[in-house]
Nucleic acid binder design. Structure first.
Lengths: 191, 191
DNA sequence: TGTGACATGTAATATGTTACATGATTGA
DNA sequence: TCAATCATGTAACATATTACATGTCACA
């Protein structure tokens, strides 16, 4: 069932998802979900989340109820039925190039490596491998956490990050090998 | 040498890189570079590129010379020395979480899969694998092209996309296996 | 002579970032 | 009681998307 045609941003859709998963939830709790994620694409900044929730409420995709304990204003947001339909539409919608494509900031930089001296290129690759290795450790911790808490979906999502970061490390090593390690054996034929 | 402190967007930095690689180059040629890329993050829309070039020129990172053949206005852009320094600064700058992190639209959706019935979850995974497989073929073609033209850097960049998309396919299969194959095929009910 | 691809641009608009302001709670 | 952290918000700003307007060229 197509619902609420106007397009939503990735962040808005992800927010719907978070609200669905957590149930009635405060804006800050939603922010934390993004802030604590090993992925950094959704910054979870206040300036993004509060106006976003106002937009979603204006479109009747979420509803809020006051939750004030004492004087401080606080609202708990939940999905409306329309909001849940919209979320499900998104999850069921066919995947195209945009979804199959990924964004790798290191790969973007790599395209322009010819602007550097050979020595700086090597430093670039070393830095990349270091940063990726740290990221890998962060994700491995997440993975273990979710495994212990039995949170299957989050576990699989973390595994995705792990698969990817491992592939990227392997890739960086392959490049360094090709560029610097000369005749190293064992090279697989590309493709 | 730190140059030109104000921060540039990824697209602006990538544009500097493209201008550096191609030499004096028209706006449309720059757009095409993004339009033709197997990655879809940089749309290369006119509304992004033309104002961007004006900004970079105002900051003296690029300079342009008229290239009008006949009546139609056309400018060729090249990097200024400051522009080249800025590009090199970017490539040499240390990599942090943001660079080590990646953005996988399928992984974002996966986090909310609990909103779907078991049957729809399976469809989701099938769709994902299909889209990824198509993307893989596109990247494989790019890879071969660059290999034939001897364009080492672009070849390695394409290899990066290939490593990643393969890892993602493997990951999707792993999830389907865990959820449906093997042991108790009993899907849980949607929450 | 018209059609479609190539090419240059602008305007309206929406989203998200940074920076700021402020209140509440915890614990040193 | 002071500082840090948690939490709610707003305002200014910059960037990028969509949609539009228009010109040029090849060629059927």
């Amino acid at each position: 069932m197509p619902v609420n045609t106007p397009k939503l941003s990735d962040l808005e859709l992800a927010a719907l998802g978070v609200i669905h998963r957590l149930g009635p939830v405060t804006p800050y709790r939603i922010r934390k979900e993004f802030l604590d994620s090993p992925s950094t694409i959704f910054s979870g900044s206040a300036g993004a989340i509060y106006p976003l929730l106002a937009r979603l409420e204006a479109r009747r995709l979420v509803a809020s109820a006051s939750q004030a304990t004492g004087k401080r204003a606080s609202r708990a947001y939940r999905l409306t039925p329309a909001g849940k339909w919209r979320l499900i539409d998104w999850l069921n919608s066919p995947m195209g190039r945009d979804e199959a494509s990924d964004y790798d900031p290191i790969r973007v930089r790599l395209h322009f490596l010819s602007a550097l001296t050979a020595s700086k290129r090597r430093t670039f690759l070393d830095n990349a491998e270091l940063a990726l290795t740290e990221q890998k450790q962060i994700i491995e911790r997440h993975c273990k956490n979710h495994q212990q808490t039995g949170d299957l979906i989050d576990y699989h999502a973390a595994r995705g990050g792990l698969h990817t970061v491992r592939a990227r490390i392997k890739w960086i090593r392959e490049i360094r090998n090709a560029m610097f390690e000369k005749t190293s054996a064992g090279g697989e034929s590309p493709s």
